[in-house]
Design a protein around this nucleic acid. Sequence first.
DNA 1: TAGAGCCTGCGG
DNA 2: CCGCAGGCTCTA
Length: 274
Amino acid sequence: MELPEVETIVRTLAPRAVGRRIESVSVFRRDLLKLATPEAVRKAFAGSCIAGIRRRAKFILIDADGGFTLIVHLAMGGKLLSVPTGAPREEHTHLTLRLDGGCDVRMVDVRHFGKASLARTDEALTHPFFARIGVEYDDAEFTPDALHMLLAGHPKLAVKQFLLDQAGISGIGNIYASEVLYRAGISPAKPCASLTRPWAALLHGVIREVLSEAICNRGTSIRDYVDATGRGGGHQSALKVYGREGEPCPACGRPIVRIVQGQRSTFFCPRCQR
DNA sequence: TAGAGCCTGCGG
DNA sequence: CCGCAGGCTCTA
């Protein structure tokens, strides 16, 4: 899941969890936690109230009023759900926060690619998880010039691969990388250095547009993704190229092509994207 | 800066 | 059986 899905989870989880008291913490898969133990999470969270839930890059931060923050990364296919406390525990549930008011926050992750850690709230954004995380798409620092500079720092790298690198711009994943490049009319294989300042400015605007539109549509559900209430996203019907190999390009009608870059699928229109 | 690897599950 | 999946980490 990518930034729009993570943002949607934050927005749907917050009204169900913020202000609630954490009655208990259960960790069912110990190695979910990095640089933290289940005992430490329990000690930091049990008895506290959830003060806020926020997002940084693809991470979800759950702030408790005792001064500690749980940092969660859902990777591919992970879920963070608000479910009634009495509901049966679904398979691959790795962590549960039992809240007052009758609901749990549960992290479910079939593929075990997700992770979580604990930080002091005032230091949460300097946690090692964020050591190589770049700028937010909507940050004031993310300007056309800033993007142009970032591109210049990876001259030979294919621009698709650059978009996936969280150390540059954070939050873009495999779906939106293809969608962004299609809308910008840029071939995914283009080396970053070949993007002149006007192209960087165009790409900058398109990144902001595509991610905000996907957030407005509450993310993309192709396979498993659901928000904290179990509801799917609405953006899948707005995708122009991702997952559409062989289908006609919405602009020129020629077939969308799938290639592999860095072991990930890329979808694009060879005619509209140069 | 490429590539293998980490896991489980689905669909062809 | 095979390929594929909204991600990231470590290695050569």
